[in-house]
Design a protein around this nucleic acid. Structure first.
Length: 569
RNA sequence: CGGGAUGUAGCGCAGUUUGGCUAGCGCGCUUGCCUUGGGAGCAAGAGGCCGGGGGUUCAAAUCCCUCCAUCCCGACCA
């Protein structure tokens, strides 16, 4: 390929719409253009990267026995009504009508379609297990698309669905995908972690997210600092370890204290001279059905996902000041569990607390020496708080480290959630009809491309891992007027192509600086510079994008050395 | 959906406060000259429904109303 024939419109200035680095660089380096909010055109350079990622994905899916198919993007509403998600999915589902006024959805995911397919085509245990996947556009009408390809409304996703006879089979399929995902992201040259996660609205039991570690990530993950320990979890999932030390005090007499104006934990803490660990923070949540009081230690934060799971409810929101007043009889800041007439959910730590401070449900008043069980009843005891860096690892006890991550993949055990709703069954050996046991496994392909940039860039531009670079090597003659340089560049380029490398010849009649800047911006792993220096010694000059290192290599070693260098990138 | 901001050439912006000449600048683009180891220089060009609609006015990029779009913060979220 020659640069003069390639549509790679680089920009000198960053378009004002971009905020995060991958978005800026994808625009500047000529990989994408925005069509409308959260919807992008992938230009030729991006397509080359995406095809490489797709190829890696296909190889690893196929290695595990996956079969590729392609399902429709346009999906009939009836199927979604059958699974119950037509109503549940909400406004994030793109909906449309045809000329007959029939309703459809643009597929945000394909559980319905695949389950409908399999229920009609699979009827025997002999056809199982089955791993089916596709790579195609997905549609989600995000409330707030942002960060370029990291959160868009139309994006490319690989989705695989596994069908097994039972949980044991599912476990095997799940493990296969875990392994495949690990290999995929390794091969893409990314630094990532598989982390335990919450399964959210999609349902199911076990789930892992594959997080590319990058500061711009929207998700926070915790992982164990000990190298041998592989514990890692999304903060929304990370389990707390209860430290029971220091609870050997004798319960003392409950008493009321005047605490004028002390609304916050900090104010109460300094007013009453107690540590936040001795304070019970009482928060009122509305579930849509009822109001519940949630108790966590003063130095902790509620984890709303854990809370929703503990309560078995879908929606939660903090109660407003009016609700707080009507429930507690006091303004916000003075709620407490004693003589409170709503369901009480206590975090594990609170259930074990002794002689705590809590709000008195009376303005400007707190209670001291509050003790669970003696002074109030707990309806639900559960882990409902956020775990933070520094707390002990649930597996080995070492300290946890916190990092930001971009979720590039997620694997779920669905069980029979969809097969039951859509009546997808098979006959076992004894002729008994049983529900198919499903798993689903997604990779955001376009998001993976953006995540790779988030993790691999510098002031000059993108630094592609060699495995997913749009071209492996760019050949740049310094001067287009120098016949020797031009012809040598041509020879070098042809040799590289003949040797099977993905090479690009920058044949533009630009000054050297322009070609160098573009090469750095686009981020080809290697640049072969054909200039006077190298020609004088019958050598070629190779520059490594990632390190800036410049090597002079003999012309007859060109192919070998380029191959070696790429192997290390 | 709540809050904030912005829409002027492909990109980045000025002009709007206080209405007034033919709507500007830089980059990019075209042509020519020149230059060729890190986004050179000179010259001549092309490119605008000033986001759309409505209004006020002798006169609107500029004031008013309205709609739309885009971005940021928040809430929400496989």
């Amino acid at each position: 390929m020659r640069t003069t024939e390639l549509l790679a419109p680089t920009l000198r200035e960053v378009p004002a719409e971009a905020e995060v680095i991958s978005h800026k660089l994808l625009l500047r380096a000529g990989f994408i253009r925005r069509e409308t909010a959260g919807v992008y055109t992938y230009l030729p350079l991006a397509m080359r990267v995406l095809n490489k990622i797709n190829q890696i994905i296909r190889e690893e899916m196929d290695r595990q026995g996956g079969q590729e198919l392609l399902m429709p993007i346009i999906q009939p509403a009836e199927l979604w009504q059958e699974s119950g998600r037509w109503d549940v999915y909400g406004p994030e589902l793109f909906r449309l009508k045809d000329r007959h006024n029939r309703e459809f959805a643009l597929g945000p995911t394909h559980e319905e379609i695949i389950t409908a397919l399999v229920r009609s085509e699979v009827s025997s245990y002999k056809q199982l297990p089955l791993l089916l996947y596709q790579i195609q556009n997905k549609y989600r009408d995000e409330r707030r698309p942002r960060f370029g390809l990291l959160r868009s409304r139309e994006f490319i996703m690989k989705d695989l669905y596994s069908f097994d006879r039972d949980d044991e089979g599912l476990q095997i399929s799940y493990q296969k995908m875990h392994e495949a995902y690990t290999r995929i992201f390794q091969r893409c040259g990314l630094r990532f972690r598989p982390v335990e996660a919450d399964s959210g609205a999609i349902g199911g039991s076990d789930t892992h997210e594959f997080m590319v570690l990058a500061d711009s990530g929207e998700a926070a993950v915790l992982f164990c600092e000990k190298e041998e320990c592989d514990y890692a979890a999304n903060v929304e999932k990370a389990a707390q370890v209860i430290v029971t030390a220091g609870h050997d005090e004798e319960p003392e007499l409950l008493a009321e204290m005047s605490t004028p104006g002390a609304h916050t934990v900090e104010e109460v803490s300094s007013f009453l001279k107690v540590t936040p660990q001795k304070i019970i923070k009482t928060l009122l949540y509305e579930t849509g059905l009822e109001v519940v009081a949630v108790l966590v230690r003063g130095d902790r934060e509620v984890n709303e996902i854990k809370l929703a799971n503990a309560l078995g409810c879908l929606h939660l929101s903090l109660a407003g000041p009016d609700t707080v007043r009507s429930i507690t009889g006091a303004q916000v800041g003075f709620a407490g569990p004693v003589k409170l007439n709503v369901k009480i959910v206590a975090d594990l730590e609170v259930a074990a607390i002794v002689n705590a401070v809590a709000g008195a449900n009376k303005d400007d008043t707190h209670l001291i020496n509050v003790n669970p069980a003696r002074d109030f009843n707990i309806d639900v005891v559960a882990d409902v708080r956020m775990v933070r860096a520094g707390e002990p690892c649930p597996r080995c006890g070492e300290a946890l480290i916190e990092a930001k991550g971009i979720e590039v993949g997620q694997i779920f055990k669905l069980g029979d959630k969809y097969s039951k709703a859509l009546r997808a069954v098979y006959l076992d050996e004894s002729g008994r009809s049983r529900s198919l046991i499903m798993g689903c496994y997604g990779i955001g392909v376009t998001r993976t491309m953006a995540a790779a940039i988030e993790q691999n860039n510098d002031r000059d531009g993108i630094i592609w891992p060699a495995a997913i670079a749009p071209f492996q090597v760019v050949v740049v003659p310094v001067s287009n007027k120098d016949e020797t340089q031009v012809s040598t560049a041509e020879v070098v380029y042809n040799r590289l192509v003949a040797a099977g490398f993905e090479a690009l010849l920058d044949d533009r009649s630009e000054r050297a600086g322009v070609k160098f800047k573009d090469a750095d911006l686009i981020g080809y792993p290697l640049r072969v510079t054909i200039g006077a220096k190298a020609l004088a010694n019958k050598q070629v000059e190779v520059r490594v994008r990632r390190t800036g290192e410049v090597l002079m290599i003999d012309q007859d070693e060109l192919e070998n050395r380029i191959g070696e260098l790429l192997g290390g990138l």
